[in-house]
Structure formats: structure tokens, C-alpha cells
């Protein structure tokens, strides 16, 4: 899932500037699951903004709403009427949701209330870790199910660097060395020889480096869409 983290209140206030009427928009999917931007977080943030702006003597009118998915037109379209009442939307969705709102409702500015952090999973309650970089050319099949693009600090494709020690990365002892994990999996499955082939340079054009990506599935397009 997409994992996000709320921006500090000071930064949010600075982004909001002199806005008088603000709609805090939560999102009911990924950011709800990671406790960053769901209905509950939207309510808490809206309340905090009301109090803070009151204390600072420039009260803002802040309301909140949460839609199931800010990244799909069908879920955000019903907001159209309501948005007419606001100067600013403060979205607690990921960066996709923020952009979807700006794109669909060009007359009102939607600001980000979260930092979209990574694609990952909750390792345990309250701990999220990155697992995928959406590089567009999955190599998990040759790395025994552990991604060195997302999990090696140097994105190495041919084994660990010289900074791997006692199973952890040189960058931070909280980061398990991806290549240590890959090596252990290779041993477990008795397939060490698969790691001995020199992996060629990666085709980064399928990643973000090739420019913004797009998928068109002709088999799924509707006749009326052009």
C-alpha cells in the first residue's frame, strides 16, 4: 500500500496562509490503513487547525470530509458542489489524490497535508517499511523475493557492497542489508549459483527515469472514451 505521514502542523499552517475557509479531505484507502489521512485523522487535524487559528487570532473555518478514494474520479466527483464554499482543500490523501483533486477541480487549490512516503507494509503495529519502488521492471524473480532496488541503499544488482556487516546496512543499523537477506534465501533454496551471474545494467527507462509512465489497455477501454 501507499504509506504516508502527516506534515507538521506548522508547515500545514504556512501552506494554508491566509485561507479563510478550508476543507480537510481525508481518503478512505491506503492512508486510512496507515493512520495518516483517514476520517479520524481528518477530524483531528481539522479540529487542531480550528483551535490553532483561533489562538493566533485569525480564525479559519475548517470542515472535513472523507471520500473512499481520492485517486478515482467517481469517488471525488460528488464533491464538486461542496467545494464551491471553500478557498482551499487540504488533502490528506497521497500525492496522487492531491493531484486528482487539483485536476478535477481546477478552480480551487488543493494542498497536501501529508508527505507520501513510500510503497510498503506495516511490519508490526505502528511500524511501516518500504518494499517497492515501482521501477517498472520487477526483478524479485531473480532476487529470491527481496527487492534490492527498494531495500539496498545503493540499489546494487550484483551483491552486497563492502558496508554490509552483521546483517545490517552501513547507512543505518536499523536497515537490514537486502543482499544479506537475498544471500540467505539463495542458500535456503540451494540456488546460490543464480546469484553468481553478472546482472546487466538495469533498464531505467521503465522506471521514473523514462518520464511519467502510462499504461493503456485497449481491451479495457470503453467505446465512448476517445
Amino acid at each position: 500500500m501507499i504509506v504516508g505521514e502527516q506534515k507538521p502542523l506548522e508547515e500545514i499552517l504556512s501552506l494554508l496562509g491566509n485561507a479563510r475557509r478550508v476543507l480537510v479531505a481525508g481518503c478512505g484507502t491506503c492512508v486510512t490503513v496507515c493512520f495518516a489521512g483517514g476520517e479520524k485523522e481528518a477530524a483531528i487535524l481539522a479540529s487542531a487547525l480550528r483551535m490553532k487559528s483561533q489562538l493566533e487570532g485569525r480564525p479559519m473555518e475548517v470542515d472535513e470530509v472523507t471520500v473512499q478514494r481520492q485517486c478515482e474520479w467517481e469517488y471525488i466527483d460528488p464533491l464538486a458542489e461542496r467545494l464551491k464554499d471553500y478557498n482551499v482543500v487540504l488533502s490528506l490523501a497521497c500525492g496522487i489524490g492531491v493531484q486528482a483533486m487539483n485536476e478535477r477541480f481546477p478552480d480551487v487549490i488543493t494542498l497536501p497535508g501529508l508527505n507520501t512516503t513510500f510503497l510498503g507494509l506495516p511490519e508490526e503495529h505502528g511500524v511501516w517499511v518500504e518494499r517497492c519502488q515501482a521501477c517498472g521492471d520487477c526483478i524479485l524473480g531473480v532476487t529470491f523475493g527481496i527487492c534490492p532496488i527498494a531495500r539496498c541503499s545503493k540499489q546494487l544488482l550484483n551483491g552486497p557492497c563492502g558496508g554490509s556487516q552483521n546483517g545490517v546496512c552501513e547507512v543505518n543499523p536499523d536497515i537490514p542489508c537486502a543482499w544479506q537477506l537475498i544471500w540467505e534465501r539463495a542458500i535456503k533454496f540451494g540456488q546460490v549459483e543464480r546469484l553468481l551471474e553478472v546482472q546487466p545494467p538495469k533498464n531505467w527507462s521503465r522506471s521514473r527515469d523514462g518520464g511519467p509512465r502510462k499504461i493503456v489497455r485497449e481491451d479495457l477501454r470503453l467505446p465512448e472514451s476517445e
Binding site: S153, K154, Q155, L156, E170, Q199, P201
Partner: peptide, 24 residues
């Protein structure tokens, strides 16, 4: 060389490249 990670240096907020690894 692969190179020491930028977090150890004097520009820890830099973007690293690692387009290739040392073997490539």
C-alpha cells in the same frame, strides 16, 4: 567503486545515482 553512501558525507541531502553498480 560503488562509492560510500552520501549520508556519511557533507551533502547528506544529495540524490545518489547508482545507475550502474561496480560490477556493471
Amino acid at each position: 567503486l560503488t562509492g560510500d553512501h552520501q549520508s556519511f558525507g557533507n551533502h547528506p541531502t544529495a540524490k545518489n545515482v547508482h545507475d550502474l553498480d561496480s560490477i556493471q
